[in-house]
């Protein structure tokens, strides 16, 4: 009986403590893609399990303790540079949960790829879920929103605002360069990634490269309906519709020389006019600040085009 009373007492006490901690101590409240989350204090040890979230955390001036696929990130995303302290915990789709637990994170940031194992992750640390890429929202606005929400969670809001303002300045500056390079008016531009010498993944509405171009004041040369990732596969032939515009293609493309030699490619209106250039390898499914890297890389290529004319 005494046992029962004491255990009841314990339970009610802990309930009280719980209520207390949520209502009074909760200092950070954020909205992730599933609703409101409350944290008693800003997490310090951050596990970012998706590359765009890794980018965001680093851009906020922090070093995530756990990240997936270190080598592949350095190869394909590259910017921002990974801190040496971030530990590789394995694949983006199947991160090593035990290794993650050993790193004792305060919070785990995930994207859509890991939503179905949220319950497993929650045993390790609170999970914050950001669904950046969706067909029915604006991916870039969402990326900015995710960036700001993260900033709020990590107590870096001032830093984040400064970063976004700096990004805006970079856009202005790049736009100035472009305007100077194309005195007759800015061309329309479409970017793509070749899949073979006969087909390409074209970035259309809701694609990050497309948003980057929009921020530079450039319109799409080949308007494409919005999709989840913003990319649509197209036959080479359908590119001939781009009569006036410029085509930028992302590297790496290992059949570049073969394509350049082919009569089909050479008879494209934009190739004949010299309105084509390659873009240095850049990650096209990134976070808020990746837009800036995209804009820089694509501006470099466009300046090349302008120089050739």
């Amino acid at each position: 009986m005494i046992n029962l009373v004491s255990s009841w007492f314990k339970v009610s006490l802990s309930c009280l403590a719980l209520v207390f901690s949520v209502s009074v101590l909760a200092e950070v409240r954020i909205q992730d893609s599933q609703g409101e989350q409350a944290f008693s204090q800003s997490p310090v040890r951050i596990a970012a399990l998706s590359w765009e979230l890794v980018e965001d955390v680093i851009e906020l001036g922090l070093e995530p303790v756990a990240i997936p696929e270190r080598e592949a990130y350095q190869e394909w995303v590259a910017q921002p540079v990974l801190p040496a302290s971030s530990v590789d915990i394995g694949g983006r789709a199947e991160p090593n949960l035990e290794k993650l637990a050993q790193l004792k994170p305060d919070v785990i940031l995930i994207g859509a790829a890991l939503k179905d194992i949220q319950a497993k992750l929650e045993r390790i640390a609170p999970v914050v879920f950001f669904d950046t890429y969706q067909r029915d929202h604006n991916n870039q606005e969402k990326a900015d929103q995710v960036f700001l929400t993260l900033a709020k969670l990590l107590d870096k809001e001032v830093h984040a605002q400064a970063k976004l303002a700096a990004r805006q300045q970079v856009f202005e500056q790049l736009r100035g360069q472009l305007n100077a390079a194309f005195p007759a008016g800015l061309p329309k531009v479409t970017s793509l990634r070749f899949a073979s010498t006969t087909s390409a993944y074209v970035y259309g509405d809701n694609a990050m490269p497309q948003y980057a171009l929009e921020h530079l004041g450039l319109q799409a040369a080949m308007p494409l309906a919005s999709t989840q990732w913003g990319v649509t596969q197209k036959r080479l032939k359908s590119l001939r519709g781009i009569k006036e515009g410029v085509v930028l293609y992302f590297k790496p493309f290992h059949f570049e020389k073969k394509l350049a030699k082919s009569p089909l490619w050479r008879s494209m209106p934009f190739v004949k006019q010299g309105n084509v250039a390659s873009v240095a390898s850049t990650w096209t499914y990134g976070g808020a600040m990746s837009l800036q890297y995209l804009a820089q890389a694509m501006t470099d290529s466009l300046l090349e085009v302008a120089k050739q004319q």
């Binding site: 010498t197 006969t198 036959r235 082919s262 089909l264 490619w265």
Partner: peptide, 9 residues
């Protein structure tokens, strides 16, 4: 399985 061609190569 894609048969599309770009040139006679």
């Amino acid at each position: 399985g894609d048969l599309s061609q770009n040139g006679w190569e």
